[in-house]
Amino acid sequence: MGRGTTVAFHSYKGGTGKTTLISNLAALYAASGSRVCLLDFDLYAPSLMSYFKKIPTAYVNDLLNGEVDISRILVDVSAELELKGKLLLGFSSNKKEDVNAIEIKHELKWQLTAMRRFLSAKNQLFEQYGIEHLFLDTSPGIRYWSINALAAADNLFLVMKDSDMDIEGTMRMINDIYDSLVKFGSKFFVVLNKVPGASPIIENRFGADDTASIADFEKQIKSRVVGSIPCFCDVQFSKHEFLWAVKQPEHPFSKKLIEVAEAIRNL
């Protein structure tokens, strides 16, 4: 079996909708018959566990600490979600002590040892589990474990909002870290999320002038935009949005996500 691809979703700030997008995309891939694994690498502020409402027996943290094997952390949700393919999930711990432990473990030796464990687990996922697409949900900003996850990925997706604050910070992040990653052969792309325009307010053309065209935006950020997902209030303010892309495929948000999934697949 050939080696699968690894994609990481990252952002400059929190609240860009990264976890929602990556979960939906992973589910879409699995729904279309692919073997997918989604790992929560937002070790500093985990959210995948509450998104999927699961309590695993072991966490990504345990894997990095060398306490468990990859098989112990994986949770298979394919059957309950009635997916054609496979969707395996790996959660990171939201316990205060585990988050604190990650926060303070900055020494290079541990970082590299943990990274080796993760890479070995990644190979296992491809070889033993036949995973075709490995999705990594990373922490926003520049932190050790977001860098580690990004470095392990073939394609990086920067999820951002079309706001000056986000653009400015993302540009800085590109200069600081992405350029180094690109030097080593990684490719990075942008996914614009929560773009103004889907709500009725656009009928009054309010804010329309502030929305830069994709071409201008790509020039500014020096990267390709693989998707532009409008801000849908029902998604944004839903009490618990859960895999709309597979549960409500007719929703415009889901349709947009299907387009993005296709664009990513064709990269």
Binding site: R3, L108, Q111, L112, M115, R116, L119, S120, K122, N123, F126, E127, I142, Y144, I147, N148, A151, A152, D176, I177, S180, L181, F184
Partner: peptide, 23 residues
Amino acid sequence: RERKLKQHVEKVRKLVEESRKGE
């Protein structure tokens, strides 16, 4: 800090490359 992070990226990327070669 920025430089340290860039060095970290390089070290981690080397690990990734080694891991790929070992596949």
